[in-house]
Design a protein around this nucleic acid. Structure first.
Length: 544
RNA sequence: GGUCCCAUCGUCCAGUGGCCUAGGACACAGCCCUUUCAAGGCUGUGACACGGGUUCGAAUCCCGUUGGGACCGCCA
């Protein structure tokens, strides 16, 4: 039969001779064991697909297929042909296909986006996440990333927090093009320095009768019966009736603007194109829409980001551990991994490649691909990502990362050359998920002291000593002190003497590192050098 | 309480009406490798919240239910 020739479904259907159809339908109505099982899916290599009977299988472009000479076929083709064949009496409705809406917005437009923290605390994970997505969008579109300080809360805002937020952003590698510290043509970038702008604009609204004074404050009069609708770049269409809103305060009695009013004024005058912020601002947006419309200003695009939750699925708070980005830095996470990890919360590049650099992320980032549902902050994944980044680092960068933790442990960092230290970390070969762990796993490269503190050699039984002494005696007189030679020799020796590798390698490991877990012990021995290794072995009396 | 938003493995994502017997990653378990531990390789456990529609066909569209969350400040 002719079914199965590649082509569009309509062609296909036309070629099916109706007499076959009832036959096939019967088959499907009483599906017996195996019909489904014997189906072959048209996957990647649809070309040489064979049926279990060895007959060639005709595969349709649309994955409808059947085996020639048999009645086994996909349920789908039967139902499809039955209802869509023009000759069929079942063809009652036109299976009109809806046009797919073209999803991706053009990204040729340079975006002007901003991160607008209030300096009332350290840079938290959520803030870092928001800043990161803004930054990504700015860099992806070749636009600008602006830092604006929203310090209209006189009681809680401090300069210290402003500085600490900026250094947090720097640590994450998020550089801004305009901001209070580096200026720009849309300044000033602190709301407390833009008061005239807010007052002038408020006066205009009062004059137009759209706002009114109440004491020293100015409130916006919310008109009833207005549908406030906007298309969120990530959430889609959102609508709210103005009747559910109370009049919005624009200027507080102390003369400061409120958040909902100041953002509108600033985003307008700073010519922000995309307002990218946390999902908790969705319900603020309609109020701002009202202001934009009353002021007859063009609205920016809005893109809200999913919230980041703790393991308990509640908003991240101190109770679930570290919430500020510095705490992660101090635990030994590196900025690249933090960036990578945060970027993966609410977004993905598609399939593979979860480990990426800033530049790679910039390249492939797409605002419209951001996820809607809240994401849980998963330490396990952060650990994994951090480990991957540490592994891939340049040895000297890795050294710079680990060094502070060694110093904190009072290890004699300066007693060694940079080369020695960097290659010691290379011997570790990616062991350790944080810089802190790496430092802890590698202390024996810097000093014998911690080894002596955790190991005293007492676990070696008296009857083992003669064997060990004989072994080490020969080992230390090897002409070359290289890992490969040490290993070859040890293997041969253990074979010859009938001693298990483990029995001589473990004491060796314990004596050199004081740990029962370490990199390959011969690599460690080579890195330590013959003399230092001999000294450690001798200390425990394993040689003599 | 009112309004709005969300709902795929334990977690993060893929999925935009038929390539889904729902894919990947982390985590977990097992095996391999092996001087230990990582790494690596292989395998496994594991999800479309529920109920109705629409459709020949629904994880995907619609409605409802349930469950989460956010906002409702002269905080931002």
């Amino acid at each position: 039969m002719a079914v199965g020739r590649p082509g569009c479904v309509e062609d296909h259907a036309a070629e099916v001779r109706l007499p076959f159809i009832p036959d096939l339908c019967e088959h499907v109505q009483k599906p017996h064991e195996g019909v489904r099982g014997r189906s072959v899916r048209a996957g990647q290599g649809r070309e040489g697909v064979k049926s279990p009977e060895g007959q060639s299988v005709a595969v349709h472009e649309e994955q409808f297929f059947l085996f020639q000479g048999t009645h086994i076929l996909c349920v789908q083709i039967v139902s499809y042909l039955r209802y869509n064949n023009p000759l069929s009496p079942f063809m009652h409705k036109s299976a009109g296909k809806k046009r797919k809406q073209g999803g991706t917005p053009s990204m040729t437009e340079k975006a002007r986006v901003r991160f607008a923290p209030s300096p009332t605390g350290a840079l938290h994970i959520g803030g870092g996440h928001t800043a990161l997505f803004n930054w990504l969008w700015a860099r992806h579109t070749g636009g600008s990333f602006i830092l604006r300080i929203e310090d209209t809360d006189r009681a809680r805002s401090t300069k210290e927090f402003e500085d600490t937020i900026m250094s947090g952003l720097e640590w994450l590698g998020l550089d801004w093009d305009e901001g209070p510290d580096r200026g720009g043509s849309y300044g000033p970038y602190r709301q407390s320095e833009r008061l005239d702008l807010y007052h002038d604009t408020a006066d205009r609204l009062v004059k137009e009768g759209k706002a009114y004074r109440e004491g020293d404050a100015v409130l916006f009069r919310v008109p009833p019966g207005i549908a406030l609708r906007f298309d969120d770049v990530v959430y889609g269409s959102i609508e709210m009736m103005s009747d559910t809103l109370k009049d919005v305060v624009m200027i507080k009695s102390d003369g400061m603007p409120t958040y909902n009013y100041a953002v509108v004024v600033d985003d307008h005058f700073m010519e922000i194109t995309h307002v990218i912020r946390g999902e908790d601002h969705i319900s603020n947006t309609p109020k701002q829409l009202l202001l934009y419309d009353a002021l007859e200003w063009e609205r920016p695009a809005f893109g809200h980001l999913p919230m980041i939750l703790g393991t308990d699925k509640k908003k991240l708070s101190k109770r679930q551990g570290a919430t500020s980005v510095y705490e992660y830095r101090d635990m030994g996470y590196m900025p690249d991994s933090m960036f990578n990890f945060l970027a993966l919360l609410g977004w993905s590049a598609g399939e593979e490649n979860e480990i990426f650099s800033r530049n790679e992320a910039v390249e492939i980032f797409e605002l419209s691909r951001v996820t809607k549902r809240p994401a849980v902050f998963d330490m396990d994944k952060l650990n994994f990502i951090n480990q991957e980044h540490i592994r891939r680092m340049d040895p000297f960068d890795r050294l710079a990362l680990v060094e502070p933790f060694w110093r904190e442990m009072n290890l004699p960092v300066d007693a060694h050359s940079r080369e020695y230290l960097a290659s010691s970390l290379d011997v570790l070969a990616g062991r350790g998920q944080t810089a802190k762990q790496v430092a802890g796993y590698s202390d024996y490269f810097l000093s014998f002291e911690p080894v002596k503190e955790r190991y005293d050699g007492s676990d070696v039984k008296k009857e083992q000593l003669p064997i060990l002494r004989r072994f080490y005696g020969e080992l230390f007189s090897l002409p070359e002190w290289k890992a490969s030679d040490l290993e070859t020799f040890t293997r041969e020796w253990s074979e010859r003497e009938g001693v298990k590798m483990k029995e001589i390698a473990m004491p060796f490991r314990m004596a050199l590192t004081g740990m029962k877990v370490s990199p390959g012990i011969f690599e460690v021995a080579e890195q330590l050098g013959r003399e230092e290794s001999r000294r450690r072995i001798a200390h425990f009396g394993f040689t003599g």
